[in-house]
Design a protein around this nucleic acid. Sequence first.
DNA 1: AATAAAATACCCCATAAGAGCGATTGATTC
DNA 2: GAATCAATCGCTCTTATGGGGTATTTTATT
Lengths: 208, 208
Amino acid sequence: MISDTIHIAIVEDDHEIRQTLQLILDGSNGFACKYAFPDAESAIASIPNLPVDVVLMDIDLPGKSGIDATRELKRNLKSIDFIMLTVQSDDDSIFESLCAGASGYLLKDTNPADLLVHIKEVFNGGSPMSSQIARRIINSFRIIDNPLSDRETEILKLLSQGMNYKDVAETAFLSPHTVKTHIKNIYSKLHVNNRAEAIYKAIKQKLI
Amino acid sequence: MISDTIHIAIVEDDHEIRQTLQLILDGSNGFACKYAFPDAESAIASIPNLPVDVVLMDIDLPGKSGIDATRELKRNLKSIDFIMLTVQSDDDSIFESLCAGASGYLLKDTNPADLLVHIKEVFNGGSPMSSQIARRIINSFRIIDNPLSDRETEILKLLSQGMNYKDVAETAFLSPHTVKTHIKNIYSKLHVNNRAEAIYKAIKQKLI
DNA sequence: AATAAAATACCCCATAAGAGCGATTGATTC
DNA sequence: GAATCAATCGCTCTTATGGGGTATTTTATT
């Protein structure tokens, strides 16, 4: 927001951690940390009116969670970067945080010197995270296993574009009857009974 | 594959880079780099029979690309970790690499000392990448903007589970007529004419 | 107070989809 | 050489879907 110095806010319920972090950050060259909140509600009320660049957000807060707070704040404050700083590293927390708009995800045992580096990285458009957490995210891109044949996958892709039997038949140079048979086999392999669920499952399993 | 020492293979077409890297890696304590290939084809032919833990893979190779090579090798060699080591950092290369099975993605200007650290990280189940690259990946989790109301989103989710008008109506305590109206509005907002395409678009745009 | 969305409900009608059948051909695998 | 699977084509029947309307009430938003 304001040049040179990176302005930070902390949202953390533990009094001890909050004060210590604030002291360290505010005392470091190039950083200012004038604002610290013990809960999501007070952060949501104040941060929109503060000159803040980066918010360090705890996930486990009393009342509203840090993920919800991030979602709400990020909605109207696109330029502020949020770093989740937490003890939790389960997949759900990570993905929810990222979907809510977090730019970084660090564990609380990150040492202060590294934390400063990571805050700078976020400020400069990066997304710091431990390589362990990165791996979890990367694994979400993997295909588990594909029960569909090439032809079936091709047809399912055409269906996902809104085509009906006739359209698919013409595109794939097939009889509509054949298309129908393929689709029935697709449903059977995916254990579904209709197009909507087939497409949903196929995308979630990265088959299309 | 074999304990203590991490066994590395390099796939890189530039003779100079390949030799230099191999020398550095093989000369480092705890690392062995006995295999280096100038192209995808020779790597694909040899690596399945070699005791290798980590492969450093260039993307830009003559003939078959490093991404394709990774995909083919990873299919049968689940336990080998692949690190893409490249000059390209465009979104497509990153995502294709991850989908192909890469565990890390580093730029070629990474210095040797860091490279060693990153190879260790991959070997220990991490996924090293620069925080700039991490940000691109994270951005893929973001919602662009959601034209659907809460009720519409709720109904679309139920549709994606394979429900028909009647099922949705019962689940959401609505008349089937109302469900139909909502669905028509969903189609209109997403600019589609049927369920399949609606679900496809909605997932791609992270609306459901 | 006025306007715009969102949420609710209903009607008609042509067509698309899905379930349940059967069948042939050519690879691949065991 | 048998068995399996992929890919192809066909039929009937019932139900679901989507397009075309209209209309009321509630809930923001201005």
